[in-house]
């Protein structure tokens, strides 16, 4: 039987999303497709699968991304779906541990990719929003006409900056650990 769950995760909470998807799989609900805030599950044996997600470096249709997905599948994982640049895999729990990365270097590189994305989106929103609001003020529009989309851009920019800060903290912790361990 199929079950649809609507739930939103901030990009910087991708590890919480992965944890939640694994908790669902442990309960016998295995992810079969992903969409915008929409997760579709089907019944499976509790704990039958483990789930992993990752942000791709290039667009999902890019030849390099396709090669990468093929490679991961060749290691026994199943490509469940793609949402924006995020890819979702599942693997039978009987195959042992399932993670996309097994060393600090590749984990840090992956985090840097997410940081660049979230950071650039936040910066663009902050700049566009501030520009629009300043223009509205400079043109002395009445307060009711104040550029609301500009304010929305600024809000997104601030939220994204918070996310970037969270990701940077996570990345720096990994970097510090990588100085001591491999």
């Amino acid at each position: 039987m199929r079950h649809v769950v609507r739930k939103l995760f901030w990009v910087w909470n991708y590890d919480k999303e992965e944890k939640w998807l694994n908790e669902m799989a442990a309960k016998g609900l295995c992810l079969i497709s992903v969409g915008y805030g929409k997760f579709e599950f089907e019944d499976c044996d509790p704990g039958e699968y483990r789930i992993c997600l990752q942000m791709l470096e290039k667009r999902p249709r890019h030849i390099e991304s396709r090669r990468y997905i093929e490679f991961v599948e060749s290691t026994g994982a199943e490509h469940i779906g793609t949402f924006a640049r995020w890819i979702y895999f599942r693997k039978k729990a009987t195959d042992g541990d399932f993670a996309m990365f097994s060393d600090y270097d590749s984990r840090i590189k992956h985090l840097n990719r997410i940081i660049t994305f979230v950071g650039l989106v936040s910066l663009a929103n902050l700049l566009i929003g501030t520009g629009n609001v300043i223009r509205a003020i400079a043109n002395a529009y009445p307060i009711a006409d104040l550029n609301y989309s500009g304010l929305l851009n600024i809000a997104i920019g601030i939220l994204g900056s918070f996310g970037t800060w969270r990701l940077l903290k996570k990345r720096n912790k990994l970097k510090a650990e990588s100085q001591l361990f491999e």
Partner: peptide, 21 residues
Amino acid sequence: MQKAESLSNGRVKLAAGTLYG
């Protein structure tokens, strides 16, 4: 992945993303 795991008696488990890079 399998060879690294067997050589290290199960200790080294290379994840697909790390191995690909």
